[in-house]
Design a protein around this nucleic acid. Structure first.
Lengths: 112, 112
DNA sequence: CGGTTAATTAACGGACGCGTTAAACATAGG
DNA sequence: CCTATGTTTAACGCGTCCGTTAATTAACCG
């Protein structure tokens, strides 16, 4: 079972429908029906997706009368990005330049 | 089936063992047995994890004699980070400051 | 050739993910 | 109270994921 937080976050993001829901929520809060509207899947399916997102901390929910509104909580995305940042030097050109620069400094240090 | 690239990447990252493998590969290439060593799971299980990582583009593999060496390919992490960057303004303080700054500029523009 | 080492493939089992439809629950409102 | 609306829960099917052990493939080496 994926019990750790990061696994929950990445697993939640691994589904295109859920990513689309997050994209929609970036424009503002929305009810379940509103979120379901663009998709050709049933309301219960959407309901489950929202539960997954909530469990990963990617959304929070509030109740007003019979409507349940979802709100984006991007903090987990920060966590995920932070994890990936360990690998930034493997792809980021500017990071590579910084790397080279630091190496040069190091060499000067050693040769002095 | 998760057929799109981003889903493959996030799904690959959703497993702690696979993330640990990537962490190990950040220190340099390694063979399957070397990668398996820290884990209490069988070699075939590791072999499958590597296949998942390769399918997501997160590693590439080469063969030397009977050894298969894996190498980190972080480009997919860049893609994933890029996707998350759309949400950066929802968590990043400096992004919020920039946002506020731009809004101020906008207001000055309008009132002139 | 025959044995050893490295790794993968095959076959299986159990858990989980994602969808469905039908039923239940919650709230508003005549 | 009864009904309409919004959403969730229940029960099920099916495919995939993750692990196992046993068998197979691949390459080296005495």
């Amino acid at each position: 079972m994926a019990t750790d937080r990061l696994s929950l976050i990445f697993a939640a993001l691994a589904d295109p429908t859920r990513r689309a829901i997050l994209a929609r929520l970036a424009e503002g809060e929305a009810t379940v029906s509103e979120l379901a509207e663009p998709f050709a899947i049933s309301l219960p399916a959407i309901s489950r997706h929202l539960k997954v997102l909530e469990h990963a901390g990617l959304i929070s929910r509030s109740r007003t009368a019979q409507w349940r509104s979802s709100r984006l909580e991007a903090e987990p995305l920060r966590e995920a990005t932070e994890w990936m940042d360990r690998y930034r030097r493997f792809w980021d050109e500017s990071f590579r330049r910084l790397d080279a620069h630091l190496r040069r400094l190091q060499e000067n240090e050693e040769s002095s």
